[in-house]
Amino acid sequence: MGQRMADLSIDFAGVQLRNPVLLASGTCNYGQELLPLTDFARLGGLVTKTITPQPRGGNPPQRIVETPAGMLNSIGLQNPGLEAFVEKQWPLLADLDAQVVVNIAGFTVEEFGQMAASLEALAGIAALEVNISCPNVEAGGDNFATRPQTAAAAIAAVRSRTQRPVIAKLTPNVTDIAEIARAVVDAGADAVSLINTLVGMAIDVEQRRPVLGGITGGLSGPAIKPVALAMVWKVAQAVDVPVMGIGGITSARDALEFMVAGASAGQVGTASFANPNAGVEIVEDLYAYCDERGIDRIASLVGSLR
């Protein structure tokens, strides 16, 4: 390999990223298990599994099933809860040589605000990613992320309680994702990330039962990449904040497609399950791509779709 020339760094809503590759929420837990298998110092960063105010046990098994070029999961936001996260997970995360984005959720508007406020004192969090794809218990269990008003209310609650960059994570399970993106940006989001998983289902014909304990689950992996690309492209045109592209990124080429479509950075999710070092390998291949093509700054590719 020749000498590296390309500059892969990205300023993402004020967060300085070494390179545009982060590990996605729920696909790297809180980082520790990956320490022997990957090198966080060579990644742009990682996003923690969603933290909720109370601990959650999660959904009954079966929680995973492979589908064509993808998989369904029904984890049910299993997490230790805010208090245990601050005491146990955060100190270990803070030790990593990486930008750590903490992903938070709540089940009422107020809970979103409380989550942001409670994390404000922790030094070292790069940004908050807000998972608004959860049921709003004050509105009959409707998902916050599916209506502009509720999505905006959750983001506004976080915005008013934090100085940190706020990234709103959007669900693809909506009619018009650009409308939701505009609503969360108007509510104060500094950036958006998309897509979360698509609702899907698997059925065992012999048993005539759903395969997953949660009946439906979230579809991820290469199968969803074209959907994610179209949505990133649409949202990047609708808002003037940075976009984080997520959905089926398995190779440097996939990551580049998202950047060309308008994403300033990308997250690697499901790909880490088959290859725990996938993120780092994608970064290596991005260097190789830029060096071969004489691209000095990867940032110049963002939104370069002709």
Binding site: G26, C28, K49, Q54, G57, N73, I75
Partner: peptide
């Protein structure tokens, strides 16, 4: 390797929805 939390098995000591363990 422990990062997806997918291979869950319920423990006899389980204490309800808000029991992370």
């Amino acid at each position: 390797i422990g990062i997806c939390v997918g291979c869950a098995v319920e423990l006899a000591t389980a204490k309800g929805d808000t029991d992370y363990g």
